[in-house]
Simulated assay, not measured.
Amino acid sequence: MIGKLKGVVDTVAEDHLILDVHGVGYLVHCSARTLRDLPRTGEAASLVIETHVREDMIRLYGFGSEAERDWFRLLLTVQGIGSKIALAVLSTLRPSELAQAVTLADKTMIARAQGVGPRVATRIVTELKDKVPGGGLSADMGLPAIAGDAAIVGEGGPVADAISALVNLGYGLPQANTAVAGAMRAAGEAATTETLIRLGLKELAK
C-alpha cells in the first residue's frame, strides 16, 4: 500500500493532481484546500497518501498532513459519508476547525461544506463526538492531549487552555472536552479561560 509520495507537481485539476514520481504519473484525489496549498507546477511536493483498493480500481487520496488524512478516515466511518463528502468537509474546514466543530457540536459550521446538509452534519457530530477525544488520536488533529499542545481554537486559545487546566486537575480528556463544550454553549465564544474553567467545573459537578 502507498502511504506517502514525493515527486513533482505535473498537473492540477479541480479535484485531483498528477504527481510525477521518477517518471510515473500518480493521479491523486485531494481536497480543494490541499490543492490550493500545493507548490506550483514543476515544483517538488510531498503528500500523505490513503490508498483504497477495489476489485476494479485503485484510488489514491492525498493530504498535506497526517492530521488531514486521519480526519478523512474518521469521516468515512460516519454512516452515509463517502470520499466525496469527506473531501468536501476537509475542503471547507481545517483539521483544528473540524475538531472544534465536532467537540462543540457545531453542526452549522460543518454544514458549510458543499453537499453537507443539516442531517449529514448532525450524523458527523453525533457519530464522531465520542470517537475523537477517546480514540487515542494525536493533538495534531486539533485536540489537546496535555497542557501546551495545539489548541482547538487557535494555538493557546481559551478553549484549549481550559481543557488543559481540567486535565491537569485530574479529569480525563473526554470529560474535560465535554465540560468545556458545555461551558462554551453557556458563556459564548468570547468567554475567557477563567470563565470556561469555572463553568466547566460546574458541568463536571452535575
Score class of each variant (00 low, 15 high):
residue 1 M to G: 07
residue 2 I to P: 02
residue 6 K to C: 08
residue 6 K to Y: 03
residue 7 G to E: 00
residue 7 G to N: 01
residue 8 V to P: 00
residue 8 V to Y: 03
residue 8 V to M: 11
residue 9 V to P: 10
residue 10 D to Q: 08
residue 15 D to H: 12
residue 15 D to F: 07
residue 15 D to E: 12
residue 18 I to L: 15
residue 20 D to T: 00
residue 22 H to S: 10
residue 22 H to Y: 05
residue 25 G to I: 06
residue 29 H to Y: 15
residue 30 C to V: 01
residue 33 R to P: 01
residue 34 T to C: 14
residue 36 R to H: 11
residue 36 R to V: 02
residue 36 R to T: 14
residue 39 P to T: 01
residue 39 P to Y: 01
residue 47 L to A: 11
residue 49 I to W: 05
residue 51 T to H: 10
residue 52 H to R: 11
residue 58 I to G: 01
residue 62 G to R: 11
residue 65 S to W: 02
residue 66 E to T: 07
residue 67 A to L: 09
residue 67 A to Y: 02
residue 69 R to I: 08
residue 70 D to S: 13
residue 70 D to M: 08
residue 71 W to S: 02
residue 74 L to E: 05
residue 75 L to F: 03
residue 76 L to W: 06
residue 80 G to A: 04
residue 80 G to D: 01
residue 81 I to T: 01
residue 84 K to P: 07
residue 85 I to M: 13
residue 86 A to S: 14
residue 93 L to N: 04
residue 93 L to M: 05
residue 95 P to T: 11
residue 96 S to D: 08
residue 96 S to I: 02
residue 99 A to Y: 07
residue 102 V to P: 06
residue 104 L to H: 13
residue 106 D to R: 05
residue 106 D to L: 02
residue 107 K to S: 11
residue 107 K to W: 04
residue 107 K to T: 15
residue 110 I to S: 04
residue 111 A to C: 05
residue 112 R to H: 13
residue 113 A to G: 03
residue 117 G to W: 02
residue 119 R to Q: 05
residue 119 R to K: 14
residue 123 R to V: 01
residue 124 I to S: 10
residue 126 T to K: 00
residue 127 E to W: 08
residue 130 D to W: 07
residue 131 K to Q: 10
residue 131 K to I: 09
residue 133 P to L: 12
residue 135 G to Q: 12
residue 137 L to I: 14
residue 139 A to G: 12
residue 141 M to K: 08
residue 144 P to Y: 11
residue 144 P to L: 14
residue 147 A to V: 13
residue 147 A to R: 14
residue 147 A to Y: 12
residue 148 G to P: 04
residue 148 G to H: 09
residue 149 D to P: 12
residue 151 A to R: 14
residue 154 G to P: 10
residue 155 E to N: 08
residue 157 G to N: 11
residue 159 V to T: 14
residue 159 V to Q: 11
residue 161 D to W: 03
residue 161 D to K: 14
residue 162 A to T: 13
residue 162 A to E: 02
residue 163 I to N: 01
residue 164 S to Y: 03
residue 165 A to G: 04
residue 167 V to Y: 10
residue 169 L to C: 08
residue 171 Y to Q: 00
residue 176 A to R: 11
residue 177 N to R: 09
residue 177 N to G: 05
residue 177 N to P: 00
residue 178 T to E: 06
residue 183 A to P: 03
residue 184 M to P: 03
residue 186 A to P: 05
residue 188 G to K: 09
residue 189 E to S: 12
residue 189 E to I: 13
residue 190 A to L: 14
residue 191 A to P: 12
residue 191 A to L: 12
residue 197 I to R: 00
residue 197 I to K: 06
residue 197 I to A: 07
residue 199 L to T: 09
residue 199 L to M: 10
residue 200 G to H: 10
residue 202 K to T: 15
residue 203 E to D: 02
residue 205 A to R: 10
residue 205 A to F: 00
residue 205 A to L: 04
residue 206 K to I: 08
